[in-house]
């Protein structure tokens, strides 16, 4: 299963491995992308990079694992990291079950990427000095660790973090990779549609619209009404706002029949009617197939 050279400086690639690893395996880098088993041997030694992306059955890692960097992207059932873990770089993008940190661990110096860890509700107090911290899509996170220091950036898109502690006041902020300033992050009510429309950078403009809320933006921007009809929630309208160097914003403005809340649901820019928009939102490719008895 291995080449003969597992000598100094070797990188071993074992994609989609479904066999147990040999005892006392030592190597410099180990790429186990697509690993099929639920655990790793306790005596594994990786000097620098351990890659376990898409190890969808992985349930646990060995206690006291020490590596330079650990990549665990899309490990769908991994819910905890082991006690005594040491690394500089950690990437847990898409680990949707991950919720428990070890009591004792040393993850510092490099970057911690926790993008879309939807079950994660807290960060551990021992997280103190990092380069970058990506929390985009960690919907439940409300707070940063008290002693955290960052030399790079903090991505807080979609988190419930409402303010930064004073010692992080100058940290560079990102919103799903787009550089933003403090006001866009923490004072979204101060963004006007005019300001968003004047923003030349299309990526940043999209974030501004997201922060304002698409409905608020459409109302302030005097959207053009492409179509109008009624559904169970009352009047609904298909709205259109042209954007510089970007596809226009087209969205279905409707009310939820049970709560009465008003929404703007973005649809593909070529949509012409409210019915087409509702069909697309319901997942129909061809609007002619969409004949709901009742729209909710």
């Amino acid at each position: 299963m291995f080449g003969t050279d597992t000598g100094r400086g070797a990188k071993i690639e074992l994609r989609d491995c479904s066999q147990p690893l040999p005892a006392k395996l030592r190597c410099f880098d180990l790429d186990l992308t697509g690993y099929q088993l639920d655990r790793l041997p306790d005596d594994l030694h990786v000097e620098s990079r351990l890659i376990l992306d898409n190890a969808t059955r992985l349930r646990s890692l060995p206690a006291n694992l020490k590596v330079g960097s650990l990549s665990l992207r899309n490990c769908a059932v991994l819910d905890a990291l082991p006690e005594g873990l040491e690394c500089w770089f950690l990437d847990m993008t898409g680990c949707e079950q991950f919720s428990r940190w070890p009591q004792r661990a040393n993850i510092s110096t490099g970057s911690v990427i926790l993008r879309d860890c939807r079950s994660l509700a807290y960060l551990p107090p021992w997280l103190t000095r990092l380069a970058n911290l990506d929390l985009a899509g960690c919907l439940q996170l409300q707070q940063l660790p008290p002693d955290l220091m960052l030399t790079g950036w903090l991505d807080l898109a979609g988190t419930a973090i409402a303010a930064l502690p004073p010692h992080l006041a100058d940290t560079r902020l990102r919103w799903r990779g787009v550089r933003i300033d403090r006001r866009i992050a923490f004072e979204p009510a101060s963004i006007s549609a005019m300001e968003a429309l004047r923003e030349p950078n299309a990526e940043l403009r999209r974030v501004m619209i997201e922060r304002m809320g698409a409905l608020e933006f459409a109302q302030q921007a005097n959207a053009q009404v492409l179509d109008e009809d009624t559904d169970a929630g009352g009047r609904r309208r298909l709205l259109h706002i042209p954007l510089e160097q970007d596809e226009p914003l087209v969205g279905l403005n409707c009310r939820c029949p049970s709560t009465g809340r008003e929404y703007l649901l973005r649809v593909p820019p070529k949509t012409k009617t409210c019915h087409q928009a509702a069909a697309w939102i319901a997942g129909f490719d061809d609007p002619r197939d969409y004949h709901p008895d009742y729209e909710t």
Partner: peptide
């Protein structure tokens, strides 16, 4: 990648 430099920077 910057991760590859970790053993050196350690």
């Amino acid at each position: 990648r910057v991760e590859d430099l970790q053993p050196l920077l350690s």
